[in-house]
Amino acid sequence: MKSAIKSAVILLLILFALFACQSKSDYPEPTKEFYVNDFADKLLPAVESTIVREGERLFEEESEDGNISGVQIVFATFTVENETDIAKYNLSDLYNQWGIGKDDMGVLIVYFYVGDTEDPSSLDLKEIKIEIGYAMEVYLSPIEAGNILDTTIMIDEDESIGTAHLLYELLSVVYVDVFGYNSFNYDLDEYQNYLDTYLPYSDYDSLWGWILYVILTPYASWWEKGILVLIGLAILGLGGGVVKNIGGGGRSGGMGIRRRR
């Protein structure tokens, strides 16, 4: 009898603990790269790599007086079956859940693709939204954000170039207006060359995919497989080779802009 009561109490405690730990979040957790969250699987690996690389670099930037640092520009893509479903996404909630930018210095860009969610080729980019962190509102107004969208992703024929163009224009605002740089230069023709010559195994995820492929494929020799097993173990031993970025804890309050295509 005593043990039955004891078991019941333990069970109740476990249930209580599970209930207390229940997540209230409505949106997926960000990816380990943090700066790019391509849930629609529509961005090219080269573009994703650029967003992450530039994001990590920007996060390290600090103003001369040391008051501003940890600025984050984050991209996300979502799929919806029809355009009315886009209204179900509250970008402030998403921004706050991910905690973008230290001291509210962040920008969230979301692409909404509409179509058959099971078939990526049927998905069309229909709406783009920009959510601006509280402190970032001083530097990036809805007017400015709207103008940036109008001159980049809204008119660039190629979505990859358009996305990079959008990223570089936002970086330009941050580096010049926030960090006081004289200018921020980029060359889209050069970027097109980068896209054309991008090696798909130059980031961590693809590298692991390639290592696994070579280990499992019957076309690789045993010594190749052996070397890659050793390299894989060495990377794991040095910390897993997994880069994990996290949000700076920022919040936003609904300020932003949207465009429909």
């Binding site: 107004s141 809805p142 007017i143 954000a145 103008n147 309050g253 609904g254 300020m255 802009i257 949207r258």
Partner: peptide
Amino acid sequence: YGDYMDAVWGIESALSEARRQ
């Protein structure tokens, strides 16, 4: 004109979120 509309959309979006919060 477009700039004014952007400003209106931005502030209405922010106000709507402030009321909700």
